[in-house]
Amino acid sequence: MNIFRLVGDLSHLLAILLLLWKIWKTRSCAGVSGKSQIMFGLVYITRYLDLFTNFISIYNTTMKAIFIAVAIATIYLIYFKFKATYDSNHDTFRMEFLIVPVGGLAFLVNHDFTALEILWTFSIYLESVAILPQLFMISKTGEAETITSHYLFALGSYRALYIVNWVYRYYFEGFFDLIAIVAGCVQTILYCDFFYLYVTKVMHGKKLSLPA
């Protein structure tokens, strides 16, 4: 465990808790893409199946369990408890356009042709694109609430820190995982445009809105 990964994980945790808290506190999930949240839920469930097969550390097990629980709670709030506030007519990204190609790719490009490994690979690929419905929704409505922007910023920071972590691990531990690194870089690139808007607008106290 290095500092980049720890801060990255904490940033990831902060992001998902922030989103859950915002929905709970405002009793509304307006502006939040339920489709992105379903895909993140799928990411955690398919990746953390190893909770049942091997033990790494208390930290690892706890974080995995929290991620799965928070993801399921978020999906529940969006699709059940606060369904009336869900902005479904702006959340129009087709999930199958991501899940089907990503599933195909996981079958073709993986480390080992076993069920757990293919599901792990699927989750890595899916995570890299799971935020697209959320970004698409923001581009459709032309704006995002400030807390949603903070959520995206914390989530993007986690990805960026993971890249630094991989550079560190490559140099100091000789570890690298090509699948995780390529997918992680793709994912981070998707946040770049958003990062720019966040720094130029939200950090100066303005709401994130896109130029008309």
Binding site: N60, H111, R169, F175
Partner: peptide, 10 residues
Amino acid sequence: SRYTILKDEL
């Protein structure tokens, strides 16, 4: 395998 699989990461 040829790659080190970082299963300890989240």
